[in-house]
Simulated assay, not measured.
Amino acid sequence: MNATRSLSRSRHDRMIAGVLGGIARRFGWNSTLLRVAYVLISIASAAFPGILVYLILWLLVPEGD
């Protein structure tokens, strides 16, 4: 994996917009585990607005190749 790869949304590993798939690819993580952790943190914490963060990342992170 290229360590200098920039953050981009995944075109192939996506459930909605590819945001978490792109983050997982960038850092070499398992995308399924990242999605599960993100949902659990979003549900368990009222201080972490998961849907809003996801929508902002969807708008700001460019789509990858």
Rank of each mutant, 00 (worst) to 15 (best):
F48W: 14
R5I: 09
G21C: 05
R35M: 05
A46R: 12
H12P: 00
W58R: 15
T4D: 14
L33V: 04
D13V: 09
L40A: 15
A44Q: 07
Y38L: 00
I51Y: 11
T4C: 09
A46H: 09
D13R: 12
V61D: 08
V53L: 15
N30R: 07
F27C: 04
W29F: 14
P62N: 01
N30P: 02
L57M: 15
F48A: 14
M1A: 12
R25I: 03
A37E: 08
L7R: 06
S10R: 05
R11P: 05
S45H: 13
L20R: 09
G50P: 04
G64I: 10
S42H: 02
T32V: 13
G64H: 10
A3S: 12
L57N: 08
R35C: 08
W58E: 14
D65N: 07
S6R: 11
G28R: 04
L57P: 04
I56L: 15
V19E: 07
L59A: 15
G18Q: 03
S42K: 06
A17P: 00
D65L: 08
F48K: 13
Y54P: 03
E63W: 06
A24D: 06
D13Q: 08
R5E: 11
A37S: 11
R35N: 11
L59E: 04
R35F: 01
F27Y: 15
S45C: 14
A46F: 10
V36H: 02
R25T: 05
M15Y: 03
S10G: 03
A24K: 05
R26F: 00
Y54D: 09
S10W: 03
D13G: 02
I43D: 02
S45A: 12
H12T: 14
V36K: 08
G28W: 01
S8I: 00
W58V: 14
I41F: 11
L40R: 12
P49C: 13
L52A: 13
I41G: 07
L60C: 11
A44M: 14
R26W: 01
I41M: 13
G18R: 00
T32S: 10
A37Q: 07
L34D: 11
N2Q: 09
A24Y: 05
G22F: 09
